[in-house]
Design a binder for these strands. Structure first.
Length: 610
DNA sequence: GCCGTTTTCGGCCCGACTGTTTTCAGTCG
């Protein structure tokens, strides 16, 4: 991910005034690479990389921070980098950066994108092969490798050529990140194979690691940990996975294979030290760096093996940890749930034992965004399962209630009267089920609807039709390209309707397909809190919308949310777990999420204002 | 170049793996 963000520097400098965070981060990483080649102080190199990462992770556009004079709020951006960025935004160029890039072939930054090639190698290759044109750099390198020209360069040999060719292939076939649900599926298959469904005696424990364990919405690769006394046997079994396309590396305790075109890493550790391994490779990187810095101040050193303490004679003594709880305790803090480990304040909170009591899947008492197959003739996709099938599934999830929220009947193909009749029919049908239910059938059905927000902020449903609903989820499904002000106005206008209780998939993002649209979230959140509107956390695996960092903002702003599956078939109700993961990553507790409430309480919220 | 409940100077996270080397540099996570 890191490398692919590096763009053509000249182009970037030209468009700098409109640069987004990704491009800025790429520019700073290129500076770091240039410094590395020039043998600059390595801490200066690291400083630029740190600043780049911080910008990548920044929730606010750096350009906006600049406008407000708050560039230094970004951790890792000090007075020097801040002044360079200031010049960049003002003049569209940085004299000092130009000087840094001087004498370096532009092409090296293209070659740098190839996995396995770092700054020094890229520079050496560009120079020795006389590659100047950035656009043709990778192609020319490929040809040189094929012709055996690279092995002639000092420090390179036949294997280097092979590695470069493989790297180029990987660069070209580089896939978009995968969704959490897909990654979980891949991981589960490997886990089932390795553990022989729990029968493999060599495996004492097996866990996901990395962003999978942290439940990030999208992931680049899958990491797994195994506690074992026989690492070689486990590694052997792993690298013999029959469905693997390739074994990339196989060491004594770790290995990497390619499966479904995805990198799967395995790390093994003895059970006595498993806690440290789990902690170390769960990350995130930023979280770990922060922890190690803290440890260092206490004279400790952290690694995947445990905590090292300096003893007499300058020697180190290693202390191992079976579990993560003891590891964190040794650092003077309580255990931190993996979903929080992003260095967003969780370490400080853990030191004070002030971590939020995160919502759990078992807290969910219902799902308010389910599309049934009731023939409501919607403007877009109708659900595939009957209400009966949905109720059955809801029961296995121990729900107290569900909300049937199909799309509104299409307004272009129906008269007002027809729309009203359709809603009447649905209400009658639901009333009948609710009315006929005995005390033994405890799931109550709310009669909802997902209503389109038109570009002007009106709702795509005749006013008279609303009285047949318990509540409406209002969502944007069209005209995604609007200015921030227009889109904000549009959304607020829609939320003003007394029956509009929930803002559905608020940013409209589709992972790997389109970015969410920009709204003035401060305004939206303030409106929602004041008017008791609910923001949805849509658990559909390629939406996961609100995004977790915005959930954190919503929590901070006292805005209530609801976690919904947006199911279009009964077996999708279980997707709710991904929404819970998003909520947890956003520091949400049970109190922040309304569908943790009992039926009687949520009823007042949904049907309030009648 | 950044940063500060032992610091405004003097530190700066840790280790595996690989290839090309005879002890290490580069890359990666």
């Amino acid at each position: 991910m890191r490398l692919s963000q590096r763009c053509d520097i000249i182009k970037i400098m030209r468009m700098s005034r409109g640069m987004n965070n990704r491009q800025l981060a790429g520019l700073l990483r290129s500076i770091a690479a240039a410094y590395e080649v020039k043998g600059e102080n390595k801490f200066r190199v690291v400083a630029y990389e740190t600043a780049a990462t911080a910008i990548d992770h920044s929730l606010t556009e750096v350009k906006d921070l600049w406008k407000e004079g708050n560039l230094k709020e970004i951790p890792g951006v000090g007075s020097s980098i801040a002044s360079h960025l200031d010049e960049l935004f003002r003049k569209g160029r940085v004299t000092y950066f130009k000087k840094v890039f001087k004498d370096l072939p532009q092409s090296m930054f293209e070659i740098l994108k190839i996995p396995g090639i770092g700054a020094k190698t890229a520079y050496k290759l560009a120079l020795e092969l006389g590659i100047k044109e950035p656009k043709k750099a990778v192609e020319r390198l490929k040809k040189a490798a094929k012709r055996g020209e690279i092995r002639k360069i000092e420090g390179f040999a036949q294997k280097s050529e092979k590695e470069i060719l493989e790297g180029i292939k990987e660069l070209k076939g580089r896939k978009e990140k995968m969704n959490l649900s897909f990654a979980q599926e891949l991981a589960q298959r490997v886990i089932d194979y390795l553990s022989e469904n729990g029968e493999n005696k060599d495996i004492i424990r097996i866990d996901p690691l990395g962003s999978l364990r942290r439940m990030k919405a999208t992931l680049g690769d899958v990491d797994l940990a195994v506690a074992t006394k026989k690492p070689q046997k486990v590694i052997k079994k792993f690298t013999s996975f029959p469905e693997a396309e390739k074994v990339v590396v196989a060491g004594e305790n770790t290995a990497r294979i390619i499966y479904h075109g995805r990198q799967i890493d395995l790390k093994t550790m003895s059970p006595e030290a498993y806690g440290a391994l789990l902690q170390h490779f769960t990350g995130s990187k930023q979280h770990n760096i922060h922890l190690r810095e803290l440890a260092q101040k206490k004279g400790l050193s952290l690694s995947e093996y445990g905590v090292k303490k300096r003893i007499k004679g300058g020697k180190w003594q290693l202390r191992k940890y079976k579990n993560e709880e003891d590891f964190y305790k040794a650092l003077g803090m309580v255990w931190i749930p993996p979903e929080l480990r992003e260095d967003r304040g969780e370490i400080e909170a853990a030191q004070k034992d002030k971590l939020p009591n995160l919502i759990e899947l078992k807290d969910i008492k219902g799902d308010l965004h389910i599309h049934s197959d009731f023939p409501i003739e919607p403007s877009h996709d109708l659900g595939q399962s009957s209400i009966k099938e949905i109720l059955k599934e809801a029961k296995t999830l121990n729900y107290e209630y569900i909300g049937l929220s199909e799309h509104n009947p299409s307004s272009s193909q129906h008269t007002k009267k027809q729309v009203i009749n359709l809603l009447k029919r649905k209400k009658d049908y639901i009333d009948k089920i609710n009315y006929s239910r005995t005390n033994k059938l405890p799931i109550y059905i709310f009669n909802g609807l997902e209503v389109d927000i038109k570009p002007n902020g009106e709702l795509a449903l005749p006013e008279e039709a609303f009285k047949y609903l318990d509540f409406a989820i209002v969502s944007i499904h069209s005209s995604f390209r609007m200015s921030l002000n227009e889109a904000t106005k549009r959304t607020l206008e829609a939320l003003k309707h007394s029956r509009a209780k929930i803002l559905g998939h608020p940013t409209g993002r589709k992972l790997g397909i389109r970015e969410g649209f920009d709204l003035d979230w401060e305004k939206i959140f303030a409106f929602c809190r004041k008017n008791k509107k609910i923001i949805e956390i849509n658990a559909w695996p390629n939406r996961l919308d609100l995004p977790d960092e915005m959930v954190k903002d919503a929590v901070k702003n006292g805005v209530k949310m609801v976690i919904n599956s947006d199911s279009h078939a009964a077996d999708q109700l279980s997707h709710i777990k991904y929404g819970v993961a998003v909520a947890r990553r956003g520091w949400a507790t049970k109190n922040d999420i309304i569908n943790t409430m009992s039926y009687n309480k949520i009823r007042k919220i949904l049907k309030g204002g009648e």
